[in-house]
Amino acid sequence: MPPPHSKRRVVAPRSAMRRLAVIVGPLLVVGLWWFMSASGGEARSYYLPPPPAVVAAAVQGFADGSLLEGALATLAHFLGGFTAAVAIGLAAGLALGRFEAVGTALQPVLNFLRTLPGIAILPVLMLLLGLGNATIIATSTFASVWFVLLNTAAGVQEVHPVVLDTGRVFGAQGWRRWVSVVLPSAAPRIATGVRLALGISLVVAVSAEIIMGRAGLGFIIADSMETLRPSAAYAAILTVGVLAWIVFQVGEFLEAKVLPWANRSDVRRA
């Protein structure tokens, strides 16, 4: 153990190590992928194409516009499903939080719907809404709306009595009570629901594309495998990964912008 005063000298190489590790880790994974691809004979390298083949497929996919088009379609499906889930979930959640008896009565049903894997509704919606974008968006909304709804209702109901008393003492009444006291107080909880809905709506949108899509990255993945172009499928899978990463970064950025006060440990605890 180095003595305490040498701490600063120890910290520098460690952070350099860490930076190196961040590069080495992914390289190792790609190396392992390459090794697995090359070491298993022809069949395996067919289903697990080597990295250069995937990169070539990705370059080609972006060059001919198909991957970008797919990414935009997936983004549209996800944004449609997610936005509808937030709008409906927020409105219904506020109503449920306001009328506590209704909330209590519906609680078991809502909890069931929340745990139900939302993609299961897809075949039904395909019959009801046809084989278009509306079905994908509706499935994505159905899968994610409950998280916003339940968290909003809980957030509204769990506003601390001292917060409500403070509002009353200073004359917050009617809509002002809702806008200036209840909603901001429930906001961190609502944000939790929105964050969950973000992930679920994207996953379900891509799943629906894989199953029935006419467009989107999910469709490209399924279609490429069916037409025996695994490299193109992997290129689309990587693109979905990048898209999801961007979506989550934007989500985190917006949350920090809208609720700069919410990421404190004591609020998260409450």
Binding site: V162, V163, T166, S180, L259
Partner: peptide, 27 residues
């Protein structure tokens, strides 16, 4: 007006200090 013991909860964490103090007038 009332000053609560639990200032940590009674002050609104989503409002800055000045906005907390201006709350009664805004209402």
């Amino acid at each position: 007006t009332y000053v609560f013991q639990d200032y940590g909860r009674s002050l609104f964490p989503w409002r800055r200090v000045a906005a907390n103090v201006s709350f009664p007038q805004e209402m």
